[in-house]
C-alpha cells in the first residue's frame, strides 16, 4: 500500500507572526501517516485541534512548523494548490454554507466548472457522482427543498465529481438529525468500500468512529492514541480521562470485565456484544 497522507512533526498556532505565542499552539507536533484506501476517524472533543488538523490536509491552513504531504504534494507548495485540492476534497459541517448553486446538479458541477472540464465529461461525472450518493432523482431540485442529510450528500457528490483520492469530512453529521447522520455515514462507507477513496472523518460521535477502520485520538493538540477502533475504545479509562466517551457496548463489556467476568472489552458493535454475552452465559 502507498501512503497518501504524510504528516511530519506538524505544529500550528494562530497569529504566529511574532512567534511569541508558543503557548497558544493548537497543534503540538503531530506525526501521522495514512495509507491509500484507509477509513480513518479522527476523534477529539471541542478544542482538541482535530478540525485544525483537518484544515491542514488541503491547505486551508499551512503548518507553522513541520510538513504535510498529500499524494506526494507538499501543502505549502502554492503552485500546486488546485492540484492538491482536487485530490483531497473537503466536506464541511454546515451543508447550507457549502452549496453554491440553487440547482443540485449545478452545485455538483461547480468544482468541474472551475477546473474547466469539458461539457460531455462534466455531464457524465456529475450524473455518476449524484447516483453514487443516491441523489440522482433530485438533480433538478433546489437545495432549499432538501433535508440536511440530503444536502450533505449533495455536498459529498460535489467532491466525488472531482474524482479525488481522498475525502476529508469535518464533522459532516454534527448538524443533522439521526436519520440524516445514518444516510451520510452509509454514503461515506460505500464510497470508501466501492471506490477505494481514502476517508478522513473528523467526528466527536463515538458510534461513527466505531464504524471506521482506524481511530486516531487527538487531545490538546497531540496525537495520543492510534489503532483499530476495538483497541482504542477498549482503553476506557484513558478515553474517560481525556473527556471522551466510548460506545455503550464497549463500556458494558469493560465494566463486566472489571467486575471479574471473562469478557474482552474489545467490543464495539451490538452484535459483538450479544455474541460475547451469550458466550458468557452459555
Amino acid at each position: 500500500m502507498n501512503s497518501i497522507i504524510k504528516i511530519e512533526d506538524l505544529h500550528f498556532s494562530y497569529d504566529s507572526d511574532g512567534g511569541k505565542e508558543v503557548h497558544d499552539e493548537v497543534l503540538k507536533g503531530i506525526d501521522l501517516t495514512i495509507e491509500e484506501g484507509e477509513f480513518v476517524a479522527v476523534l477529539g472533543h471541542n478544542g482538541s485541534g482535530k478540525s485544525t488538523l483537518a484544515k491542514h490536509l488541503n491547505a486551508i491552513l499551512l503548518p507553522t512548523k513541520g510538513k504535510v504531504t498529500v499524494d506526494g504534494i507538499d501543502t505549502a507548495d502554492e503552485g500546486r494548490l488546485f492540484d492538491l485540492r482536487r485530490r483531497a476534497g473537503m466536506v464541511f459541517q454546515n451543508p447550507d454554507n457549502q452549496i453554491v448553486s440553487s440547482i443540485v446538479e449545478e452545485d455538483v458541477a461547480f468544482a468541474l466548472e472551475n477546473l474547466g472540464v469539458p461539457y460531455e465529461e462534466m455531464r457524465r461525472r456529475v450524473d455518476e457522482a449524484l447516483r453514487s450518493v443516491n441523489m440522482y432523482e433530485y438533480r433538478l431540485h433546489s437545495p432549499a427543498q432538501l433535508s440536511g442529510g440530503q444536502k450533505q450528500r449533495v455536498a459529498i457528490a460535489g467532491i466525488i465529481a472531482m474524482q479525488p483520492k481522498c475525502i476529508i469530512l469535518d464533522e459532516p453529521t454534527a448538524m443533522l438529525d439521526p436519520s440524516g447522520r445514518k444516510e451520510v455515514m452509509a454514503t461515506v462507507k460505500r464510497m470508501n468500500r466501492e471506490q477505494g477513496i481514502t476517508v478522513v472523518l473528523i467526528t466527536h460521535y463515538m458510534d461513527e468512529a466505531a464504524q471506521s477502520g482506524r481511530v486516531v485520538v487527538i487531545d490538546k493538540g497531540r496525537l495520543i492514541m492510534d489503532g483499530k477502533p476495538e483497541k482504542v475504545f477498549a482503553q476506557v479509562d484513558r478515553m474517560k480521562e481525556i473527556g471522551l466517551d466510548v460506545p455503550q457496548v464497549t463500556e458494558l463489556a469493560w465494566e463486566l470485565n472489571k467486575a471479574g467476568y471473562d469478557i474482552s472489552p474489545e467490543i464495539i458493535t451490538e452484535d459483538q456484544c450479544v455474541d460475547a454475552l451469550l458466550r458468557l452465559i452459555g
Binding site: 488541503n58 486551508i60 488546485f82 485540492r85 482536487r86 476534497g89 473537503m90 464541511f92 454546515n94 447550507d96 454554507n97 457549502q98 453554491v100 446538479e105 449545478e106 458541477a109 461547480f110 468544482a111 468541474l112 466548472e113 472551475n114 477546473l115 474547466g116 472540464v117 469539458p118 461539457y119 462534466m122 455531464r123 456529475v126 460535489g158 467532491i159 472531482m162
Partner: peptide, 26 residues
C-alpha cells in the same frame, strides 16, 4: 459567518474566478 464559510468551501472546490471555467448549463 456564512459568507466566510462559503468562501472557504468554494476555494476548496478550486474556485478561481471566471477564467477558464466551463459550464454545465449549455
Amino acid at each position: 459567518r456564512r459568507a466566510d464559510e462559503l468562501a472557504t468551501a468554494m476555494e476548496c472546490r478550486c474556485y478561481n474566478g471566471g477564467a477558464g471555467r466551463t459550464r454545465l448549463r449549455q
